[in-house]
Design a protein around this nucleic acid. Sequence first.
DNA 1: TATGACGTTTACGTTAACGTAAAGTTATAA
DNA 2: TTATAACTTTACGTTAACGTAAACGTCATA
Lengths: 133, 133
Amino acid sequence: MTQSFSISDLAREFDVTPRTIRYYEAEGMLEPLRQGQRRIYSLRDRVTLALILRGKRLGFSLAEAKEIIDLYDAPQGEAGQLRLLLDKLADKRGLLEEKRRDAENALANMDDYAARCRGRLAELENGGAGQRT
Amino acid sequence: MTQSFSISDLAREFDVTPRTIRYYEAEGMLEPLRQGQRRIYSLRDRVTLALILRGKRLGFSLAEAKEIIDLYDAPQGEAGQLRLLLDKLADKRGLLEEKRRDAENALANMDDYAARCRGRLAELENGGAGQRT
DNA sequence: TATGACGTTTACGTTAACGTAAAGTTATAA
DNA sequence: TTATAACTTTACGTTAACGTAAACGTCATA
């Protein structure tokens, strides 16, 4: 029974406008089937859209996101192609790792700061007596 | 000897143009001292710039990055302010956590895929005999 | 003293990523 | 059968985040 979706189904689910989804198609990132002139999205299309939006959340441009997503559709025929693909994957992996590190550092900084704030708040709440001699 | 930097010092170090740094100032995110009309950046300014650029790498708009950075300069006078600050920090923390999860998921997907590619490559290299019976 | 190298302000230009409006098509409900 | 809801294409508009160019200041050095 392989599911399918209308454009507004996906728009609702991912909280974007139909315009946005059509734009991604115009950029060559989606190719839904058609029933007459209406677009019909498959589960695979839905996954692709999810990948696009995750890429955007991580700060990739659409062009960068497309580069990454296209790697998952790359030809795997001969060994040479596979080696090239693995190289490119390693390259993109580096970008992703940087983002993970950035997020972790930002979280660590923020948690430190919040802890200091909570400390200060505790001081204020116990009456401010006797602290910080 | 508290260090200071020219605009092109920072531009070089962070691989952006002076225009970009001036733009961040116009957006109220930096306030370097002046020596005559020349901008003089402190270590603190440099940290702020680093925070801005990390925010950008993580996909925050400048406005979002500013919101976050401004929290680190928020007033801590009374308990009410501290509680509000802690609320806002928790809010931003959520955004950061989502980005970390996104990055981790993307990395996991990519690593799985790369592993399958390496498997396929190994098959091809050992002559393709006897595999996948 | 003149010539770079570096800085400044002002202002218009550019691009990605959509928003928005107009005008038409198609299926379903009243 | 008419309305209305959801879709379509086409096309111009908008905004963030800078790029780029012009015209000028100022200091060291050849």
